[in-house]
Simulated assay, not measured.
Amino acid sequence: MNPAPAVPDEGAATEAETRGHTTITARVVEKIASRALAEVEGVRGAAGRFAGLPFGGGTAAAAPRVRARVDGGLAMVRMRIRVAYPAPIRQVTRDLRALVMSRVGELTGLRVRQVDIDVARLTPPERAGGRPL
């Protein structure tokens, strides 16, 4: 008895090259890096500046500045941050760099080649209400 020939199921997966591809944009990498930034103790965003003076108020001016570039399967990230005084800058940036590389890799499958971090300034410790001491 000959078995019946296998009929491909219409819902079956096709070969990878015929299914298309997913593109991860730089904007996605920037958002992931911004979220990771909020998880590191002692890191804050960098306020916007005009003619060397900070401007704006509230959370919009204090938002982190994150830029990313994606080239094939590689991502490069540049961040401008503030660090809360007296947090150790070297440790804070090391922790931030490791977390950004890990999160972007886990969530996108991209390999993060570098994370450049500019520490724009040190900020005073905050009171319970979110205002500087």
Rank of each mutant, 00 (worst) to 15 (best):
R127V: 01
M1K: 07
R121T: 13
R27N: 03
R97T: 13
L96T: 04
S102D: 15
P125D: 14
A12E: 15
G20S: 05
R35K: 06
P8M: 13
A26L: 04
I117M: 04
G42V: 09
R103G: 02
V92M: 10
T25P: 02
M76Q: 15
L110T: 09
R113I: 05
M101P: 00
P64K: 03
A60M: 00
P64G: 10
L133A: 05
A63M: 00
P86C: 05
R78C: 02
I24W: 11
S34R: 06
R35M: 10
G45M: 08
A84L: 03
T59E: 12
R44H: 10
P86G: 08
T59D: 09
R65G: 14
L122F: 13
T93H: 09
R111I: 06
V112D: 08
M79I: 04
A16G: 04
A12H: 01
G58Q: 06
A38R: 12
R82C: 13
R65V: 10
T25M: 01
L122W: 07
A61S: 14
R94V: 09
P88L: 08
P86Q: 10
R78S: 14
A46I: 01
V83P: 00
A13R: 15
V29D: 06
G42I: 10
G105P: 02
T23V: 15
L133G: 02
A128L: 02
M101V: 02
P88C: 02
I81E: 06
I24R: 10
A128W: 00
R90V: 14
I24C: 09
A60H: 03
P88I: 06
A61D: 07
G42R: 08
T123N: 12
I32Y: 01
Q91H: 12
A47P: 00
A46P: 00
V43K: 02
E15L: 13
R131V: 09
G109Q: 05
R113A: 15
G52T: 03
G42Q: 09
E17H: 11
K31Q: 14
P132G: 11
L133R: 04
G130W: 03
T59V: 07
G105L: 01
R94E: 15
V28K: 02
